[in-house]
Simulated assay, not measured.
Amino acid sequence: MVELIGATLVLFAGTMIGWQQAARYAARPKQIRQLIHALQRLETEIGYGFTPLPEAIARCAAHVPEPAASILRAVNGRLAGGGELTFRESWEAAMTEAWPNTAMRQTEQAALVRLGHNLGISDREDQMKHLKLAVQQLQFEEDAARLDSARYVKMWRSLGVLTAALIVILIL
Rank of each mutant, 00 (worst) to 15 (best):
A7P: 15
L9S: 14
V10N: 06
L11D: 14
L11C: 12
A13V: 13
A13F: 11
G14E: 05
G14I: 10
G14H: 07
T15C: 14
I17C: 06
I17N: 02
I17W: 01
G18M: 10
W19I: 02
W19H: 06
Q20R: 14
Q20G: 03
Q21E: 13
A22G: 15
A22L: 14
A23R: 13
R24F: 04
A26Y: 12
A26N: 08
Q31V: 07
I32Q: 15
I32S: 14
R33E: 14
R33M: 15
R33F: 09
R33P: 15
H37N: 05
A38E: 12
A38M: 08
A38H: 11
L39D: 15
Q40V: 01
R41V: 15
E43V: 07
E43N: 07
T44L: 11
T44G: 12
I46C: 06
Y48D: 04
T51V: 11
P54D: 07
I57T: 05
I57Q: 13
A58D: 15
A58K: 11
R59K: 14
R59W: 04
C60D: 11
A61E: 12
A61T: 01
A62H: 05
H63Q: 14
H63V: 10
V64P: 10
V64H: 04
V64K: 02
P65F: 01
A68Q: 13
A69C: 10
A69L: 09
I71G: 06
R73P: 00
A74P: 03
A74R: 07
A74K: 04
N76R: 13
N76Y: 08
G77N: 11
G77D: 07
G77H: 07
R78H: 05
L79C: 10
A80E: 07
A80G: 08
G83I: 03
E84P: 05
E84L: 06
E84F: 09
L85H: 09
L85T: 10
R88A: 13
R88N: 05
E89R: 11
S90P: 13
S90R: 06
S90A: 15
W91C: 07
E92P: 01
E92Y: 03
A93Y: 01
T96C: 03
T96V: 04
T96Y: 00
E97R: 01
A98Y: 02
A98V: 07
W99C: 04
W99Q: 04
P100D: 05
N101Y: 13
N101W: 10
A103G: 01
A103I: 02
A103W: 03
M104F: 07
R105Q: 04
R105W: 01
Q106V: 05
T107N: 05
E108C: 08
E108R: 12
E108Y: 05
A110W: 15
A110P: 00
A110I: 15
A111V: 02
V113T: 13
V113E: 12
L115I: 00
L115F: 01
G116W: 05
G116L: 14
N118I: 06
L119P: 03
L119M: 06
G120E: 11
G120K: 11
S122P: 12
